[in-house]
C-alpha cells in the first residue's frame, strides 16, 4: 500500500502487516508518521505527535 508523506509529499510504502496507530518513517524526509486508517488497499497517514512530557515507560 502506498500513500503520500504529509510532510514532504514523498511516496511512502506501508508494509503488509502494518496496523492502525503504528509509527512508520518517511523514507525521503525521515518524518515520523502514524498510520491513521487502513481500509482495503487505501491507507492514510499523518505526522506523528511530538513527544510529550508524560510519555515513556
Amino acid at each position: 500500500m502506498n500513500t503520500k508523506c504529509p510532510v514532504c509529499d514523498g511516496e511512502v510504502t506501508v508494509e503488509p502487516g502494518t496496523i492502525e496507530s503504528e509509527i512508520i518513517q518517511c523514507p525521503d524526509c525521515s518524518a515520523r508518521l502514524v498510520v491513521e486508517k487502513i481500509e482495503g488497499s487505501h491507507v492514510s497517514v499523518s505526522e506523528a505527535p511530538k513527544v510529550e512530557e508524560d510519555w515513556g515507560e
Partner: peptide, 10 residues
C-alpha cells in the same frame, strides 16, 4: 489499551 503502536505492542 494503546495510543501509538510501538514495536513492543506488535
Amino acid at each position: 489499551l494503546h495510543s501509538t503502536i510501538r514495536g513492543d505492542e506488535k
